[in-house]
């Protein structure tokens, strides 16, 4: 299960799961399906750039991408332990999962910082 021993990691897992549950379906539906298939008109580059100029929009994007990565890290770790019986590879799995989430977070911060 996705219980885990550290309350800190569990909080990240839980917060990320909530963010993904609330916001991923609409973003994925629009960006991944409705815009490419021409069901709805995609916002222009210019209007998106205006939107992300606001600090709150950047904070939103940081939360939107980073927290779900930690949700993945925590849940996927236990999926590998239980689902594929890989408990003996625990140290490697921990490094790959949380390291991946940390790397993704660093990339989000870097990208947001460098946005015009």
């Amino acid at each position: 299960m996705t219980g885990g021993k550290s309350p800190f990691l569990w909080t990240l897992f839980s917060a990320g799961g909530t963010v993904a549950a609330l916001l991923f379906p609409i973003h994925l539906f629009l960006t991944g399906l409705a815009f490419p298939l021409g069901w709805l008109d995609a916002p222009s580059h210019e209007s998106l750039q205006d939107l992300v100029r606001h600090p709150l929009a950047r904070l939103y994007l940081f939360v939107l991408i980073s927290l779900p990565l930690f949700h993945w890290a925590h849940r996927f770790r236990y999926t590998l332990y239980d689902g594929l019986s890989l408990k003996h590879l625990a140290p490697l799995i921990v490094v790959v999962c949380y390291g991946g989430a940390l790397l993704g977070t660093a990339m989000v911060v870097y990208t947001l910082w460098n946005l015009p």
């Binding site: 973003h27 994925l28 960006t31 949700h71 849940r75 946005l115």
Partner: peptide, 29 residues
């Protein structure tokens, strides 16, 4: 439990989109 893989996939796509947005109109198109 496997949903987390798809959650991570879309997070990475969003990161990629953000990167393209910063690169300019051509990269975004």
């Amino acid at each position: 439990e496997l949903t987390s893989v798809f959650v991570a996939f879309f997070a990475v796509v969003s990161l990629w989109q953000l990167h393209a947005l910063g690169e300019g109109p051509e990269a975004y198109a």
